[in-house]
Structures are given as structure tokens and as C-alpha cells.
């Protein structure tokens, strides 16, 4: 449930209980294989929030919001589901050929205000926000968070249905298929925010196994006017991509600040 939140919200100790993890922690969903051949295949998937990619060393990722969508758009039931201290694990049977989408999409609100001389911080859903009358707290500041945590897995030839736009939050809209990435070849991804191509989305790309190197070597990119980034990965391996953009959202007719994020894991194969 916890993602890479903005630092400013997390600077005080009291915030930890509410926001959970500090920004250095990364959420990820990592399948045992991204590309498969044959029939009736099966993958096992790890989901965690950790300091290092992709070693579960901090906190399991809750699977409450995670779902699997098959190439035909149907919901695929996760099997052998388990959540431990450091990671969640589940299997996915792959029968249909094409690309599967595995992950979560959700939104929540942060609020902070002064009460009895103390700084109060709150986090919850839109429904909880209304039920607890958070908007009426003295001097309240509310912000919205939309977050997506995805990975894609393909049995047979890659298909496009997994990228059907929902029009909500940040989405990978087009470009290189994430299961068709090779070291040394240019990759292009285009992102949409609430269905529209958006420039200024900040992207960070980090190769896995960073615990075995001194510097994480993150690649920092920003989308252009077409919502597009282009990059070439020199090394094969599993990668973690984070896209983030700040903006505005409306709440009860008032403008509030919003942060929208999109996380994706993928692999680059050696040529």
C-alpha cells in the first residue's frame, strides 16, 4: 500500500505511522519470467517494498489492490498467495497467449492540520476523507496520490490489449512493448496522464541488483511534449522504472495538489 511518496510529507517522526515508508524504499512486482513459450505455463511473482532491487529487505507489498488481467481482458485468479514480513508471493497460471498485466492502480489522500497545538497527519481513501470530515479540519491541507504499480508478462507473441487506456492516472500508452526490450537497442515509451500525453513527467530507471554496486546508476529522464521518453540500456537485466508528476486535482470544488506515480518492472534481454 505504500509507495514512493514525496519527501516533504514524511519528514517528521509522526508521519511514519501514517505514510509507512520513506522515499528511498521502492515498491515492485517482479515475475519469475517476463517472456514464456509453450502451453500451460506458470510464473511465480514477488511483490515487496525494499531498499534494494530486487531483494525483499523491508516490507511486503500488500496484495489487496493487486490483480492480474489476461490478454483477453479477463481477470485471472492469483494462486498460492502468501504474504510474509518482507514479501508477498503468488503464482499466475498462463494459458492464453499474449500479454498479461499484473499490478495495482489506486488513489488515496493525505491531509495535515493543526489540532490542540499539534501537527496532525492523516492518510486514507476518498470515502474515509468524507466520513471523517477531514476537509473541515482547521487549516487543513489535502493532497491526492494516484499510484500504479505494474509489470507485464508475455506468453508467445506480445499483444497490445494490456495497454488499453483507462484514462486514469499515469499510464504506459505506447512505444516499445515492455516485453520486447534488448540491451543496446533504443526503447521509447510514451506516458499519458488521465488519458492525455503529458510532458514533464519525471522518470527514473534503475537496474536490479544494485546492492552489488556502489552507485545505483539511475537514469533520469523527462517526457517531452508527446509524453515520450527515449533511452538505450547498455546492460541486460531486470529494471525498475518510476514515473512521477505533480499536478492539481479537484476536491469538493476546490483545487488541491496531486502527485501521480507509475512504477513498472521489466527486463532487458541481451542481444
Amino acid at each position: 500500500m505504500t509507495y514512493k511518496f514525496g519527501k516533504t510529507l514524511l519528514l517528521t517522526g509522526a508521519a511514519l505511522l501514517l505514510a509507512g515508508q520513506a522515499s528511498a524504499h521502492r515498491a515492485w512486482i517482479l515475475p519469475s519470467s517476463f517472456t514464456l513459450s509453450g502451453e500451460n505455463q506458470r510464473i511465480t511473482v514477488d511483490a515487496a517494498i525494499s531498499n534494494n532491487l530486487f531483494y525483499p529487505n523491508h516490507h511486503a507489498l500488500s496484495l489487496e489492490q493487486v490483480s492480474v488481467t489476461g490478454p483477453d481482458g479477463s481477470n485471472i485468479e492469483m494462486e498460492d498467495v502468501s504474504t510474509g514480513e518482507y514479501r508477498s508471493v503468488f503464482d499466475v497460471p498462463l494459458v492464453q497467449e499474449g500479454t498479461y498485466r499484473i499490478g495495482s492502480q489506486g488513489s488515496g489522500y493525505f491531509a495535515s492540520w493543526e489540532e490542540d497545538g499539534e501537527r496532525r497527519r492523516w492518510r486514507g481513501t476518498e470515502e474515509e476523507l468524507a466520513n471523517e470530515n477531514i476537509a473541515d479540519k482547521p487549516g487543513v491541507r489535502i493532497s491526492k496520490n494516484d499510484r500504479t504499480n505494474m509489470t507485464f508478462v508475455t506468453l508467445g507473441a506480445p499483444s497490445q490489449s494490456a495497454f488499453t487506456k483507462t484514462g486514469e492516472g499515469l499510464e504506459l500508452a505506447s512505444g516499445t512493448h515492455p516485453n520486447d526490450i534488448y540491451a543496446g537497442e533504443e526503447v521509447s515509451f510514451s506516458f499519458t496522464l488521465n488519458g492525455e500525453a503529458t510532458n514533464g513527467v519525471e522518470i527514473e530507471i534503475v537496474r536490479g541488483h544494485d546492492r552489488y554496486r556502489d552507485s545505483e546508476g539511475a537514469k533520469a529522464l523527462t517526457t517531452d511534449a508527446d509524453g515520450m521518453i527515449n533511452f538505450t540500456l547498455e546492460e541486460a537485466g531486470p529494471y525498475w522504472l518510476s514515473a512521477e508528476v505533480d499536478g492539481k486535482a479537484m476536491l469538493n470544488g476546490k483545487e488541491i495538489s496531486s502527485r501521480t506515480s507509475y512504477i513498472m518492472t521489466f527486463e532487458a534481454l541481451p542481444f
Binding site: Q41, D180, L269, F271
Partner: peptide, 21 residues
């Protein structure tokens, strides 16, 4: 069974260029 097809993807250039289709 046709379990042998599980590893066809390890011919990764051929799989990419032809096999998967």
C-alpha cells in the same frame, strides 16, 4: 507432453524474430 516448447524462448533471438509468431 509438449513441455519441450517451454524452453524455445531461450533461443532468444529466434524466439523474438520468428518463434513467438
Amino acid at each position: 507432453s509438449d513441455e519441450g516448447e517451454t524452453w524455445l524462448k531461450d533461443l532468444r533471438q529466434w524466439w523474438r524474430r520468428a518463434g513467438r509468431s
